[in-house]
C-alpha cells in the first residue's frame, strides 16, 4: 500500500527528509506498522521515532494514535508537540 509521509521540525532534521511516498509491506497496516518499517531503515530513524521525546502523529491532517489504520494513498505526518503562538 502506498502512503505519503511528511516530517516536520526536529523530526524532519533527524531523518533528513521532509516528504516521501512509500510502499508499506504490511497487510492492512496501522501507523505502528509503518513506524516499524521506518525504524528498520537505520539508527537515525530509530532515534527519531523511538526517542523519549513525545511523538505526535496525524493521518490525513487529523491527530491520530499509533493504532490508527492506514488507507491507500493516505497522508501520514510525524512531528513533536506544536510550539506556535
Amino acid at each position: 500500500m502506498k502512503v505519503r509521509i511528511l516530517y516536520f521540525g526536529e523530526l524532519r532534521e533527524q531523518v533528513g527528509l521532509h516528504e516521501e511516498t512509500m510502499t508499506v509491506v504490511t497487510i492492512t497496516p496501522t501507523v505502528a506498522d509503518l513506524m516499524t518499517e521506518l525504524t528498520a531503515r537505520g539508527a537515525e530513524w530509530a532515534q527519531a521515532l523511538e526517542s523519549t521525546e513525545p511523538l505526535r502523529i496525524a493521518v490525513d491532517q487529523e491527530m491520530a494514535q499509533p493504532t490508527a489504520r492506514l488507507s491507500p494513498n493516505c497522508e501520514v505526518a510525524f512531528f513533536r508537540p506544536v510550539t506556535g503562538g
Binding site: 516536520f8 521540525g9 512531528f79 513533536r80 508537540p81 506544536v82 510550539t83 506556535g84 503562538g85
Partner: peptide, 20 residues
C-alpha cells in the same frame, strides 16, 4: 496546543527546537 507550528531558536550557544 493544537495548531501545527514549530519554533526553532537561534541563541549564542547554537540552534534549538522549542519544546512544548
Amino acid at each position: 496546543t493544537r495548531a501545527t507550528f514549530w519554533k526553532k531558536e537561534q541563541t549564542p550557544a547554537g540552534e534549538r527546537w522549542v519544546k512544548g
